[in-house]
Structures are given as C-alpha cells and as structure tokens.
Nucleic acid binder design. Structure first.
Length: 864
RNA sequence: GCCCGAGUGGCGGAAUUGGCAGACGCAGUGGACUCAAAAUCCACCGAUGGCGACAUCGUGCGAGUUCGAGUCUCGCCUCGGGCACCA
C-alpha cells in the first residue's frame, strides 16, 4: 500500500466505494441537503431531465440522462446559482394497464411499486433531486390540474370533438395521434393501425402552427436537427387556393358542392398544364357527384380499395396508383378549359382541400397517373436546354421558340423538371415558372383580381387527437347530457377521480364501470353519462415542468409568481425520440398557457441536450428481447455509483451514442482510486487552509501551480460547454501533474499550501461527477465539516498558468521543421530572427518572401 | 425525391476563432517492485524508410482558396437521422 519512495506520514485508507456511498446516502437524507433554496438574490437555474415512465427499474439510458443532469445541477449550485432540480414520474399509460391485465393486479399498485424501485436507484446513484417537489402524474392532485387546463383550453376554443378517419391500433385498443404513428406503425407496439371513422377529442395545435415554426428561431440552444425535425413536421407550404367550376359532360353547371371545387397548389404557374382534376377517395362530396350514374361503381371501387391500403404500405411508398373517372368535369379558371374529374387513391384527404389539379408534365405522380389512364400530358414549361435544342433545330430565335411552341400532349418517359420558361400559357408565356417564381406570382395576382383564387399557406401539422379508449389515464372532465349536450365538469368538482378498483384482468373498462360513468348533469341535474375516454399521456407530460415550480399549489396548477421565478427551464436533457412528440406538445401548452395569462414565457426550454443512446458492446440497442441489457446495478454493485457516473460521462460526449465497454468501467474506477491516493498523499503534506504564495514556489511547484490553473480553466469551460468527457480529462491532467510532483519532490521539500490547494481543487472539480467520493475526501482527507455539496466551485487565474518561456514551432512553407524556446513576452522581431536562425538548414539558398508570426504558437517562413 | 448530421490511430475520443493532428483514456509493448502473481509506478505507443539525427506520407475521395486546411469553398463516396403519393 505504501508507496515507498515517498513515505507518507499518514496511512492511506483504501477506496471502499460501497461503504462510503452507504454512509453519505444516509447522511445526506438526514440533512435534507437537496431541498431547493429560494434565494431571490441569487440567479436561478432550472435543470431538468425528462421524467421517466415507471415501467420497471431504471436502465442505462436513464442512468446516462440523469447523470448528465445531476452533474450540471451540482456544478450550477457550486457556481452560486439557485438551482431547481426536480424529478417525477410520467405515471399514466398503457404498460401499467397491460401489466395489470397480465398479472391480474391494479395498474396503480404496479406503477407505485416501480416508482419506489426507481426512486431507490436514483438515491443509490446520488442524484440531487428535491423530492419535496416530486410529481406523479397519476396522482389526483396532479391530474386534477390537467383536467383544469383541458377546460381552460376548451374555453379558449382550443378543444373540439370531431368525427374523422383516425388511426386505431387494434393491439392497444385505442386511437393514436398522428405523431404516434411512426413509419406507419404504432409507436408503442409496432402494430399497423387501422383507419376508423370515429368521433374524438382534439387539441387545436394547428392554431399555433406558425408560431411553433417561427419560434424555433428563438431557440439557439436547441440542436439543429431537432429544430429541423419540428420544422419538417409542421411542414409549412406557401401557395394559393384556386376555384374550379364544376360541370357535367354537356357543360351544365352542377349545383352540388356549391358548384365549385377549390384546390390548394404551390404551383399556380402550372395551371395551364392542368389536363385533369383529382379528388381524394375520402372527399366529402364525392359520392353525391356520381350517385346513380354509370361511373358510380368504378369510383366506389377506388374508394373501397383505398381503405385497404395500410399506413405501412403508404410509408414505404411506391404504391401502384388507382383511379376512376367520375363523369364530371371542372372548368379551369385561368383558361376556361374543361378537364375531367377523377378519383385517385394517391390524393390525401386531410391536406389542403382533398382535391388537386393534376399537372402531369411537371409532377411525377400525376405523370404516372396520366400514363396509366391515357390522359394527356401537355407541356407548359421548357428548360433552357430544351429551348436551346429547338433553337438549333429550327433556326428560330429563343423568343420565337417560346411563343410558338404548341403540343397538346407528349409521349415522355417521365415528368420533366418543374422549373424553366412558361410556354402555351397565354399571357404568361415567356415568364419563368417554378416555386415562388415570377410566373407563379403573376398567375396568382390574376386569380385574385378575378376573385377565383387567393394566397394560402398550408401546414402539414394536424390537430392533436387526445382521447384514448383506455383506463389508466387522466379522465376527460366532461359529461354528456341528453338535454344540455356536452358539459364540462365544474371547476369546484374537479378532479374527476379515476376509480382504482376496476377488474382489468377480467377485461373491465371505464365504459363498463357504472359507478364511474353514471352521474348527473352539472347544469340541469338530470341523469347524464360521463366521458369514459381518458387523455393521451402526452397531455400529462406537456406541463409537468410547470408543476415542479409550485408542486403543492391547491388553488392553481402553478402560481404565476413561481413560474416567473423558475421558467423557462435552462437546461433540458432527454432522448432524441421526443424531438417531435413531447417537445412539440410542450411548446404548444406553454404558448396556450401564456395566452391565458398564466405564464410569461414563450418557450419552455431554453437549452436542450439530447443525450445519445447506450448500446451494447456490439453496437446493438439494448433490449429485453435480445437479452443484452446491462443493468446499472451490474456496475454499481461491484464498483459503486461514482464509477458508474464517471464512466458514463467520460466515455463519450453526452450527445453521442456509445457502445457499452466494461474496460471503460475499469478505467474509470482505476482513475478514482488513483485520484483518491493522490488527494490523500497531498493532504499528508498539506497545510490545509493556507494561502498559496506564488512568489515562494520553486520550479517544480510553479509547474504544478501552472497546471492547476490551466486545467481548472479548461475544466470550467468544458462544464459550460457540457463536454464532460474533456472536463474529466482536464482533471486527469491535474492528477497526473500532482503525481509527478509527489514523485519528484521529497515530502519535506513540498509546498504545503500548494499541496492543500491542489488536493481541494481535485476534490471540488470532481464533486459534480463523483459526489460520494468527493464528500468522503472533503471530510476525511481535507478535514472539512460542512458538506462539499454547498462548497464553491474552484477559482483559477490564467495569469498564473502562463510560463516565462514558450515553445514556438518553426514552419517553413507550412511544414513544422523545428522548435525554439523563447521568452513568453519576446517581441515579434526577436522571435522571427530566432526562427530564421533555427531554420537555416531549410531556407539555405532560398529567398525569404514573408514571415508570419502567431504569438506564442508558431512562426511560418515563406521561402522560395 | 426534399431536408439535416457524421466520417480523425488497434479502440473511445481531443484539437473551442484557419495556426504544432492524435489531448485524456482503453488496449498493447518494455522496464521497476515481487519468490511469483495481482495491484502500483516509470517509459514507449499513426504508417513507411533509417542504427540514428531525420525524411516522406497521413483526418472518407477529388479539386480549390490560403503563408498555413481535420477546420473554409466546390464536386463526389459511405454511413446515420428526419419528412414524404402533402399537390
């Protein structure tokens, strides 16, 4: 044990992680050190990790997520911030219900058991959560306010009920929001959803589409890719609506559908190339157009066929297109041309108007359809090389070619590029065509002038379907009364309490639970029926970060004062899988609550860190079914929580995926043991509390002092950048420098004040990362009596990191040839002269054209 | 199809503003200590050639800008991600 070359005066105890961690866990609990201060004099910092779904014990992904957040929170506290660092559970949801059905127990019991286990692991990991602010979404004092917010949204017209074709997951036995269908399948179970026509509850998130898109620019602290994903999802398109007049084969107007059908297009400039017109199979007035005609059967076949196209097939693309003629026509408002109306299964009903003008010359889908059904392809845009080819062939001028071009249809292989010069386009011929082009603007202007078109912006974002046909969720607080209609439950009767005695194992649902649904109308007092759908769990997670600000409020979900103190969240840490779902919904809630006057912020999360995934040793995602899960306990039990935390933060930058590596754990543990010995050794020759007098240091001590200031500066900067891997490497360098000093300088000759300072700074710098290790050394090796949790972050002085002389690289034509040692403050001329002398060998016989000096770094000699 | 990222030793990664590529760690090699092993400590550790001083090459590929490029520009390749019959 004793390193014989140094003969330390004190015996160094072994680093016993288990004993140390058990000791401090209890001591910290007893002291209640994690209670949030509310000192308005200090600047605030709200650090938040995405709360877990309690589906079992925590896994490696959670451990990584919370370790990152905890290191940030602990360091922020040391830097003098008033820190809010809470935790809770996203406790409603299907897995609890499914587990309860399977094991014939209650969802609540299962959920609470898992939450207790997760809390124990969090405690074991040393996470600094203020548990006085614990939020569980399945608790009535939380979901009460979810119901309250639902009603406030309703008052503002942001909630509605509508019958629509929706995604129904036959496995989960509930409808899904658009965001919850990924790659055509249910996000939770992977089953392909069916289309069902159901009346459901929606949140009108589309009212905020523009602001949700625009405000992404207010989020410089978010990863670019997340903002990109949200922008894609919101999917803004600028274009125009164009009204087409309906008629029959004999040009008689058709009264149905008010005699006109409107389309949305981003390419009004191509209106002259419209050779047919398409309706989605779900188009509302479609059946009326064909009922009783010879075309009805053909059209209905397409309508029926479209119902069987699964979302998976759609998502994978390249589907055969199907269509049928309706026997009807529309008149193109730009040129009065009559074109046939078809139904086509590639037209989506819930985007734009569900009707589309088809321009087969420029749109590959329309082209394929035209080719299949023998419809004309009329070219109306020529590319420069096409025009040039015609000029060469005919000898005409460019202008003549463009103005005289005529073709009613062409036999092309595929649609042509959609940008170029307009031809066969009336007075627009010769203008440029394309998105946002001169031609497009001119056509829209004419349509607007004639009252048959108008500018329009469309979004891909759909309203959020929030009702779920499941038990374990927040009840939607409305009552159906035959007399009064849909009646919200009055505020003083909230919450609508979810019963916890359903026989789920026997398949009982809320809709069958009389005690729940039988009620009286709050308005007229007659018998009425409660809504038995619950809210999407994502409604619960859309505002939990606000409840943390004021978790015990019994008057409101949170007070404005508390929200103003803590919001917005300064650092939000979680997985990329929520890039759209949770992060978009939360932004929507924040904006809606702001508009109600409950909040002052526009955006909930200032900085977002999406941590990478933890994969297994072979780069595979960990999963129970693969049997490759590495549980956190497999590291904590042999090595301790501090080793676990250090490993996670050191192995890779937080946003990168990494493959689990047992060797990295051993390496981290080895470093902790080494640093432990180093602190004890330094402490053995330390004058604790003494001030370092830098003028009294010998060369070895000066070197250590410089390294201390340099590495602390680097470490501090890296914490600011959230690059914990390099922050740790800086601490390792300091430990290495301390080791060199201890090895090279006999105990009697060491600077005792410096030894004390270095030891304290090593401990302090590692405190946010390895809190148990640090606390033990802080007390036992360094003699402190207060917790290191409240200790200030180390300070540094870059002036003391500077050397008297610096090594300067000497380059000739950009290649390093040699190095010279010069005084740090040597003037430019002197360094250049020294460099020229040192580079003699490489510049002999050449002409020195130029010398570039980068102070303290290099001299580049340009010699030819 | 459209839109983002990323590509650096045997491995994880560093290089923050255009300035010495490979910090720190893992693995490996040699040495010290030991009867021996483990642990620990010290040294080496991109490739090729050379006893060596050193030279040449080297950040996915190819050009370019620059005194100087992992970093900037253009054109590719590969991998990853998002959106998508969205008009």
């Amino acid at each position: 044990m004793c390193n014989c070359s140094t003969h330390e005066p004190r015996e160094i105890p072994a680093y016993n992680a288990q004993a140390i961690e058990a000791k401090w866990m209890d001591a910290w609990d007893a002291e209640g050190i994690y209670k949030t201060d509310t000192d308005p004099a200090k600047p605030k910092k709200y650090i938040l990790e995405m709360f877990p779904y309690p589906s079992g014990d925590l896994h490696m992904g959670h451990a990584r997520n919370y370790t990152i957040g905890d290191a940030m929170a602990r360091q922020a506290r040391m830097r003098g911030y008033d820190v809010l660092h809470p935790i809770g559970f996203d406790a409603f949801g299907l897995p609890a219900e499914n587990a309860a059905i399977k094991h014939n127990t209650q969802a609540k019991a299962w959920t609470y058991k898992n939450m207790d286990q997760a809390l124990a692991t969090m405690r074991r990991m040393g996470f600094s959560y203020d548990l006085d602010r614990l939020v569980r979404t399945c608790s009535p004092d939380y979901y009460r306010w979810g119901q309250w917010i639902f009603e406030k949204l309703m008052e503002r017209g942001l909630v509605y009920r509508k019958k629509n074709p929706v995604n129904w997951c036959p496995n989960c036995k509930t409808v899904l929001a658009n965001e919850q269908v990924t790659d055509g399948v249910c996000w939770r179970c992977g089953e392909a959803p069916e289309k069902r026509d159901l009346e459901q509850w929606y949140f009108k998130i589309t009212d905020y589409a523009q602001e949700l898109l625009d405000d992404l620019e207010k989020l410089p602290g978010w990863p670019e890719r997340v903002k990109q994903m949200q922008a894609n999802w919101i999917g803004r398109s600028e274009g125009a609506e164009v009204d087409f007049t309906l008629c029959d084969a004999d040009d008689n107007p058709i009264a149905g559908d008010k005699g006109k059908i409107t389309v949305f297009t981003t390419r009004a400039d191509t209106l002259f190339g419209c050779t047919f017109f398409l309706l989605a199979p779900e188009y509302e007035g479609l059946h009326d157009l064909v009922a009783g005609t010879e075309y009805e059967a053909g059209v209905m076949e397409v309508v029926e066929g479209a119902k069987h196209v699964t979302a998976v097939e759609r998502a994978q693309g390249e589907l055969e297109k199907h269509g049928a003629f309706t026997g009807r026509y529309v008149v193109n408002p730009i040129n009065g041309e009559k074109v046939p109306v078809w139904v086509a299964d590639y037209i989506v009903s819930d985007y734009g108007t569900g009707a589309v003008m088809a321009v087969p010359c420029g749109d590959q889908r329309d082209f394929e359809f035209a080719t299949k059904y023998g419809l004309p392809v009329k070219p109306i845009i020529l590319m420069d090389d096409e025009i040039q080819a015609l000029v060469d062939e005919t000898g005409k001028t460019r202008e003549e070619v463009v103005s005289s071009y005529r073709a009613d249809t062409v036999a092309w292989e595929s649609a042509h590029a959609a940008e170029g010069t307009l031809v066969q386009s009336g007075r627009f011929t010769g203008m440029t065509g394309g998105k946002h082009s001169e031609g497009e603007a001119a056509v829209v202007a004419e349509l607007e002038e004639r009252g048959v078109g108008r500018r329009k912006v469309e979004f891909r974002l759909r309203d959020w379907l929030i009702s779920r046909q499941r038990y374990w969720g927040n009840p939607i607080p409305v009552v159906y009364c035959d007399h009064c209609g849909i009646v919200p439950v009055p505020e003083d009767q909230l919450p609508v309490v979810l019963p916890d005695n359903l026989d789920l194992g026997a398949g009982e649902t809320l809709a069958e639970c009389k005690e729940f649904y039988e009620t009286t109308c709050p308005v007229c007092g007659r018998p009425a029926r409660r809504e038995t759908d619950t809210m999407d769990t994502f409604t619960c997670s859309s505002w939990y970060y606000l409840r943390y600000c004021d978790p015990h409020n019994t008057e409101l979900p949170f007070s404005k004062e508390a929200a103003d103190r803590w919001m917005p969240v300064d650092n939000y840490i979680g997985g990329i899988e929520h890039a759209i779902l949770h992060l978009l919904y939360s932004r929507f809630f924040t904006k809606a609550l702001r508009d109600m006057g409950l909040l002052s912020v526009d955006e909930p999360f200032t900085n977002l860190l999406c941590q990478g995934m933890v994969k297994d040793e072979n780069g595979e995602t960990m999963s129970k079914s693969k049997g490759n899960v590495v549980p956190p306990s497999s590291v904590i039990e042999p090595y301790g929580a501090d080793t676990m935390r250090l490993t996670i933060l050191f192995i890779a930058p937080p946003e990168k995926d990494f493959d689990w590596d047992p060797k990295a754990v051993e390496g981290a543990n080895r470093f902790l043991k080494r640093a432990w010995r180093m602190v004890w050794q330094l402490a053995g020759t330390a004058d604790l509390g003494a001030v370092v007098d830098s003028s009294a240091l010998d060369e070895a001590a000066l070197e250590l002092n410089r390294e201390m200031h340099r590495t602390l500066a680097k470490c501090t900067e890296d914490f600011d950048r959230q690059q914990f891997n390099t922050a740790i490497s800086a601490i390792m360098e300091l430990v290495n420098a301390a080791s060199a000093y201890l090895n090279n300088v006999p105990a009697a000759q060491r600077n005792r004040a410096l030894c004390a300072k270095v030891a304290e700074n090593i401990v302090l710098a590692l405190t946010p990362i390895c809190p148990f290790w640090a606390e033990e050394l802080w007390h036992e090796a360094l003699g402190h009596t207060e917790s290191v949790y409240g200790a200030p972050w180390p300070t540094f002085d870059l002036a003391q990191a500077k050397r008297d002389t610096v090594e300067v690289a000497v380059q000739v034509l950009g290649k390093v040839r040699t190095r010279i040692e010069v005084a740090a403050d040597a003037p430019k001329d002197e360094v250049e002269q020294a460099a020229l002398a040192a580079a003699e060998r490489w510049i002999a016989g050449k002409n020195v054209v130029k010398v570039i000096y980068v102070p303290g770094k290099l001299v580049n000699i340009v010699a030819k």
